[in-house]
């Protein structure tokens, strides 16, 4: 379980996340929604241990974010981050070397499904294939919490369905998945909970069905309403 209490992150002149309170429960799929600059990525990076909060408390399973949480949290960034010399095969070996929960068998299966080859150079992949590689490397881990930042970016409309299916497959019992995306309509059918972020803080949060019932509209319509203001 992730628990954020009054979490803030300030850069030079910008408050990326401000007084954020949020609990991410085990076994659920969350949609983290918001426009660019709303603080989604900063929040995910803080949970992944890439960014240190400047205020508040952020814990995973009642422990501060650190080495132990990194063993159980798998984060997929929106940008490519593999070393320039790496092939798809090297990426798998690197993950296998550092993450005990990484399954090379599962990775090979996902790579084949994503139309990638082990000999492909990571830096020469198209944006769509690079996104698939990041998804394969992340989901080949048997993590407890998956944080996927814009996993559908660059992926064509045909392949999106397969990627969403792969994400849903990872949502086995007790596992938590947090997906951020602008493509709300494609996420809506698969998520249990929604978190709307705006200007670095949570503005709406809760069970997706309850939010729909309470507000009398779909998540897509609510997204348009919240961010059109």
């Amino acid at each position: 379980m992730v628990e954020a209490k009054m979490v803030g992150k300030r850069y030079l002149r910008k408050q990326a996340v401000k007084d954020m309170n949020l609990v991410l429960e085990d076994g659920k799929i969350y949609a983290l929604l918001g426009p660019n600059g709303s603080g989604k990525t900063t929040f995910m990076k803080m949970v992944a241990g890439l960014v240190k909060p400047t205020s508040g408390s952020l814990q995973y399973n009642n422990e501060n974010i650190g080495v132990e949480s990194k063993k159980r949290v798998a984060y997929m960034s929106t940008e490519p981050f593999f070393y320039s010399y790496m092939t798809v095969g090297h990426v798998g070996k690197y993950f296998a070397d550092f993450f005990e929960d990484f399954s090379m068998e599962r990775y090979e299966e996902l790579i084949a499904r994503m139309d990638l080859k082990m000999t492909d150079k990571a830096k020469e992949l198209s944006s769509g294939l690079a996104a698939k590689l990041k998804i394969a490397a992340t989901l080949a881990r048997d993590a407890q919490l998956y944080m996927l930042d814009e996993p559908l970016n660059g992926i064509d409309i045909i392949a999106r369905e397969s990627v969403i299916q792969t994400i849903v497959e990872a949502a086995t019992e007790g596992k938590t998945i947090v997906v951020s995306s602008h493509l709300v309509d494609e996420l809506e059918p698969i998520v249990d909970n929604v978190v709307f972020m705006k200007q670095g803080t949570v503005v709406i949060e809760g069970d997706a069905e309850a939010v729909r019932t309470e507000r009398g509209k779909s998540i897509v319509d609510l997204y348009k309403e919240v961010y059109a203001e």
């Binding site: 890439l50 080495v67 984060y75 490519p80 981050f81 593999f82 070393y83 320039s84 690197y94 993450f99």
Partner: peptide, 13 residues
């Protein structure tokens, strides 16, 4: 650079 993730995501102190 973003390659920093390769190190800072790994569970190493």
């Amino acid at each position: 650079t973003k390659q920093s993730y390769m190190i800072f995501l790994t569970p190493r102190n």
